[in-house]
Design a protein around this nucleic acid. Structure first.
Lengths: 215, 215
DNA sequence: GAGAGGTGTAGGATCTTCCTACAAGGCGTC
DNA sequence: GACGCCTTGTAGGAAGATCCTACACCTCTC
């Protein structure tokens, strides 16, 4: 293996505490993400940025004291190697995206996008790469997600459905008449096929695209 | 034991997909929460509420098609036993809280409150109880959280700090010269004392109130 | 001074996660 | 049509996490 992937030093600026908490909780489940700071305002961010020395700054577009773009530009002045991910209010148009990229922002994710988009983008830009493309999805992605279900085998679907209904592994094993080990194998394969890492992702996926209830 | 606590049937209405995902992810980690529906608009919510038959509706105050209060009132007309938790934009004043409670809403949590407040409130109202008090905290709560650290014993603090720095259990055990089992015991006690259930909560707590870095 | 409660330490049961294995069948290509 | 590769159903093992229990000390309180 080439590079021993270092931890991602993350700084998050988001005005609303509830969502900041919730996003951070999610992000901190990834054990290669190291939180080095957080703020609810732009001024605060700029003030603490140097000391925190993050690798990636995730910042909201509309902060109460300033707009994220301005803050981002200041931040880039302070530390030019910083990767910035802007969280936009709405889907950004190509024109606006170009402005953002010109300003040195590495990626833009809108509040209408899925959490997984944010995560993927975050990992993508961690090494300084620019990530475009996130704005041009929405529908195709969604149906793609739904279609991913078709890639599961019969047993895998059964297990996915039972798991989404919160039936525990032991019970699933009993119901299907196989060993727990086997059920775990199915679960692992489902996760691998769908690219999930944790239960809530699978549950959410099943609820959304396959109605959760066993048909 | 008296009542076998049934699963909490949750419906979440929140306009922004990113935050909805993120909140749901968090909520679905609790294995007694069953997601029965979600929407990004009020109209959609009302339309699907009857079929979903949730026990608790968590709904945002400012939806793009209507305000949450209006939707909540309609929802209560449809199913009077529904418990509604309103997510307000900002800290609500006692006056506004009274209006909400009059309308039959069981609790209000603002977007400036901590995620844990939402969770606690959710569990509180699940049985139809009204939950007031959430609006009257902020500062005292925060310093209370910080003070909770003082309740930890010496070993517990060491372990908390190491865990927050993402040192793995095995390494912590080596560093302290005790067995992994012992480190797990410390971790369990820390969680019990601080009321946490998962790593990210502890990490966030340490980063926020104790700087994460070992002093 | 006896019991209550906190602290440092650890064991066992059970569950998860991750990795590996392997037989049976399908599909592809030469 | 035979050989090889991929998928599917099945499961085992190792390592780690969670939950519960234990137990020797120490200190505080009645």
């Amino acid at each position: 293996m080439a590079v021993a992937a270092r931890k991602l030093r993350l700084y998050l600026t988001l005005g609303q505490r509830l969502f900041r908490d919730s996003l951070l909780f999610h992000l901190l489940l990834q054990d290669d993400i190291d939180l080095v700071g957080e703020s609810d305002s732009g001024a605060d961010t700029l003030q603490r940025l140097a000391a925190a020395a993050p690798g990636v700054l995730v910042i909201e577009e509309n902060l109460r004291d300033n707009d994220g773009l301005t803050i981002a530009e200041h931040a880039l002045n302070l530390s030019p190697t910083l990767s910035i991910l802007l969280i936009a209010e709405t889907q950004v148009s190509p024109g606006r995206l170009a402005i953002y990229l010109d300003a040195g922002i590495k990626a833009v994710v809108s509040k209408q996008q899925a959490m997984q988009d944010l995560l993927k983008t975050l990992y993508y830009i961690r090494n300084g790469q620019v990530y475009v493309g996130s704005w041009q999805r929405t529908d195709s992605e969604e149906s793609g997600a739904a279609r991913a279900f078709d890639g599961l085998s019969g047993r895998e679907r059964e297990v996915a459905q039972l798991i989404a209904s919160r039936v525990c592994i032991k019970e699933i094993a009993d119901q299907l008449g196989v060993s727990c080990k086997t059920v775990h194998s199915y679960k692992d394969r489902i996760f691998a096929k769908l690219g999930f890492e944790r239960m809530p992702e699978l549950i959410l996926f099943m609820k959304r695209y396959h109605n959760g209830a066993v048909p």
